[in-house]
Write a protein that binds this DNA or RNA. Structure first.
Lengths: 201, 201
DNA sequence: GTCTATACAGGGATAGAC
DNA sequence: GTCTATCCCTGTATAGAC
């Protein structure tokens, strides 16, 4: 799977940028945006506090770059999983699997994206929230199509989509690397649960 | 249902205490613990910053009191819903319903409890985390009993409990008062989804 | 592009009057 | 039990050398 580090690699950002970026992900996920000092980020990156401002205009911009690139990556992975050649049930399983695995493998990043966005400027928040809604839309479309073909029996499409997303996203709340269950096992469990929720025949 | 304001009422806390407490819940849920200043809490409570320290020893103690009393209330409501006279399926439905409704009606409080606890002292965190595990235990016990009676067909009891809790707790992430769906409608949807997840016959 | 040093605003907590 | 005033530390961001 494409990783967050891989995404940063792809863009050929300077080494200092990458180190600050990754240090910030760790710090924000553990202590929250406001609970993290620029000194702490710099310290984790092994650099001076001033070095942060060479690569980012402000602490808020660091959060914005993290959220924005993480959601770009999520969308890319989800879109790839929603293979039009598959029937709705196969597509739902595939999307739930990658979404779950993403929130397990990148649980630190996901916690930042899910719970720190209120620290963004209104403009950045608007932009980032739109990307989040895109993910919801993909899931909802799959369920709607399954219902229209008669493959799914969900009475409430939006409700089933919300429940399905809850399963995937909440993984970021409780999963930690090294957990008893592997991300793949959790993904399989969630894919199965999602099929049951939508009433797949 | 028993409300948070009701719990505070029951304890006959001084008026200033209550106002600070409720102001802090609102502020912490919107801006996070570290993003909230003691001046902001006091301002929302219509009091001076110094007044906070008459009722609480520190800002951290405010968070601790909120988390502790909210979880006490959650446990009380959940325990009541887990009526031993009901069969496992009835008990699961009942517990999922109240847990979902709780996270909708008290979504602000729930967001604080779910995502701000890292700001607690280690001692307070240990105590509060134990209360959280109690809730998990109640759900897991119901599912285990349903499986042992043959009423449920879940192959993975802990996994089914985690998925069920995800449905209930994640409501606090997306639900806001005045949402299109009422807490009761969401509760019904989640109760149905939980039964499907555990494979109720 | 990285450092050291620092300006300056903001926030937790306390003193002491009423 | 509430207020005003304030202490003092911490945190974001910048200046300027290398």
């Amino acid at each position: 799977m494409l990783t967050l580090a891989g995404l940063i690699e792809r863009h050929r950002f300077p080494d200092g940028y990458r180190r600050m970026f990754l240090a910030a992900v760790g710090a924000f996920s553990e202590r929250g945006f406001h609970g993290t000092t620029t000194r702490e980020i710099a310290s984790r990156a092994g650099m001076s506090p001033a070095a942060l401002y060479v690569h980012f205009g402000s602490k808020e911009e660091v959060l914005y770059r993290i959220a924005s690139s993480a959601l770009d990556l999520t969308l890319e992975v989800v879109s790839e999983a929603a293979d039009p050649a598959l029937p709705p049930s196969g597509r739902l399983q595939s999307v739930v699997r990658v979404l779950t695995a993403w929130h397990a493998y990148h649980s630190a990043t996901a916690r930042v994206v899910l719970h720190q966005l209120d620290a963004l400027t209104p403009e950045h928040l608007t932009e980032v929230a739109a990307k989040q809604r895109e993910v919801t839309r993909v899931v909802r479309r799959i369920i709607a199509e399954g219902v229209s073909t008669g493959e799914f029996a969900a009475a409430d499409i939006a409700g089933a989509a919300t429940a399905t997303l809850s399963l995937c996203l909440d993984v970021a709340r409780w999963y930690r690397p090294g957990d008893r269950r592997t991300p793949e096992e959790i993904s399989a469990l969630n894919a199965d649960a999602a099929l049951r929720i939508v009433g797949a025949r």
